[in-house]
Design a protein around this nucleic acid. Structure first.
Lengths: 351, 351
DNA sequence: GTGAAAGCGCTAACAG
DNA sequence: CTGTTAGCGCTTTCAC
């Protein structure tokens, strides 16, 4: 412990703290003051070109990088954004949904682009304030929450106390928080209309309409049917959850009702795929007997058998919108909700 | 700006900096010193019970939480671990592989358990030092890297300069960094042996043996064949990449060779699934004509048609091992590589 | 029990 | 162009 004597606290220097390099060390080795090192490493134009490169090289050769924590404290800045993924014990959507990973990836890319770090946190759905805490403790300047689920009220409260938070999900009346989401009504409409145009009339709907996004997709479903003067038949609606078992259970439930159907609109590709597998096991032929449309357009969809017709959500745009919104919010700008357009991708499952 | 006059720097107070609460504010409102607030909020036994609860309540009612950045600086501590996911532009494995998300989830859980934050970063495979930077800048006390790929040398260099890093992958001779991984040799052996016991003799192998993990699985494949006195037939080996197109391409390649085969061992479930779909399109029947075994046991595997026989990697154990290893390394302990056991899960794709 | 004061690693006036 | 110095928000010895 060959450090200059400290008059103040002496934190227990763990064995690991083996002489962690800091700016003063570089300064001493370069024979300049820390100010000069600081300026050099921050590319200040004040510093002599030659001095700067010398310091830069010294730093690089010693693998020294400015301590971000101290820098942030001094600058009163912070370049970290939290991404919170609530995991619902009731497990309405399993985290392993590939769509989640994709959107995570697009957020990560957008953040990296703008020079921000991403703090990833899973919080239990019933202690969602943990998300606010991340902001309160200054660990992140804002929060992106993936999975609106049923947390509407809690989210409103967080927004009310001015936590910069952006939620991936649907717009809901009286919502105080900012959402970014795809146009689920349009998505539901596109899917249903496509099936109707294929001549299908008895279209089953798989999805839990208690979830805002699914509710919107259902609204689109209703609109399309209405346009074709077809009444919604309650017996075709199955409140399937998003887990992988969901499709199987939903098919079982639908078949148990013994109602006729010639098409299926599932609110996620995973749901659609497991449903198709279940149907196949019961000797139904897709798409001949049942045309199927999924939602999300995950990568596997095009390699599935049969390739899945689905609604594509614009992933890259989603990540960017989420990130720019949360950054704007963090700067106390007023931010409007974002509605991204969806797109029908026709493949063989609905041929 | 009703702050006490500052003689030093005055950082541009953005509109957002609207009076961000700090300890001094709580102290003033409580009529005590910041020391007292600090001690109270840290549950120091030195503080009078009554004083403490009063301060705690005040803080809670104002949504004040101790600033972690400042706390860390003062304490010389840090409770953040970085998880780095290199994305290879050559795209050997697509990030959307569900197995990735699962392992991310298990790491997140393990970290949360131990009270650590998780910094998630994607770095380009060719600038892997960015991972070291995260440590050098003090943003994280250690790094978990998912995806060993071909980065062996770079990883060794990082380990040599004592960056606490743990890699999910295979053990390689002369490796200086710590790995946590499942026993890929055993996995490959289990899969192949299973197929052999089912009477299959011409087992195709899908996987790029340039990747260490795949190389180990191939070693297991060889061992099993050797035990049954079957020679490895090069024409049955296809260096399939892990992307979703991989299975399709590999099948095409295999069929083009016009060699007989009655089984397939694919080095990921995704590969297996897309391969099965491809085979089916060419009118091959699984498992009757081709028995298939995958790898990973992703959730979709059991809901696939036919349900996929596969090798399960112990996810939860993986997350915990990665986390405890990196934490141990961060404390400068010596850490041995971890080899987790794998398990054969028999389903219908190999019936 | 509580307060005063110093300093974690860094930046930015201010003065040379 | 470079050094001196004060302080970001917090914790902790040391004194009372």
């Amino acid at each position: 412990m060959n450090k200059k004597s400290v008059t103040s606290a002496t934190p227990p220097i763990s064995v690991s703290e083996q002489k962690r390099l800091q700016m003063a060390d570089i300064a001493r080795l370069a024979g300049v003051s820390t100010s000069t090192v600081s300026r050099a490493l921050n590319k200040s134009p004040l510093i002599n070109e030659e001095t700067r490169t010398r310091i830069e090289q010294l730093a690089k050769s010693l693998n020294y990088s400015i301590n971000v924590g101290a820098q942030n404290l001094r600058l009163g800045q912070n370049r970290t954004v939290a991404v919170v993924v609530p995991f619902d014990s009731a497990s309405r959507q399993h985290l392993s949904d590939p769509f989640f990973l994709s959107i995570l990836g697009s957020i990560a890319d957008a953040l990296t682009d703008k020079g921000y770090d991403m703090l990833l946190t899973r919080v239990s759905a019933d202690e969602l304030d943990a998300a606010a805490q991340i902001f309160d403790t200054g660990r992140a300047i804002g929060v992106i929450l993936i999975g609106q689920w049923r947390h509407h009220d809690q989210l409103n409260q967080m927004a009310a106390r001015r936590v910069p938070i952006v939620v991936w999900g649907a717009q809901i009346p009286q919502q105080m928080y900012v959402t970014v989401g795809s146009d689920n009504v349009a998505g539901g409409f596109l899917a249903t209309e496509h099936l109707l145009k294929k001549g299908r009339q008895r279209i089953a709907f798989f999805g839990d309409t208690q979830l805002p996004e699914v509710a919107d997709r259902f609204r689109g479903y209703q609109q399309a049917l209405a346009q074709h003067h077809i009444a919604v038949d309650e017996s075709l609606l199955v409140p399937a959850v998003f887990t992988e078992q969901g499709g199987r259970a939903a098919v079982a439930q639908l078949l148990a009702r013994d109602v006729a159907f010639d098409a299926l609109f599932a609110c996620s590709d995973l749901l659609a795929m497991t449903a198709i597998n279940s149907l196949r096991q019961q000797s139904w032929v897709v798409p001949d007997q049942v045309a199927v449309v999924g939602y999300d357009d995950i990568e596997l969809a095009r390699y599935f058998h049969p390739p899945l017709t689905t609604i594509r959500q614009p992933l890259m745009a989603a990540g960017e919108a989420l990130v720019s919104s949360v950054l704007a919010l963090a700067e106390a700008h007023t931010v409007a909700p974002v509605l991204l357009s969806t797109e029908l991708v026709v493949r063989q499952s609905s041929a």
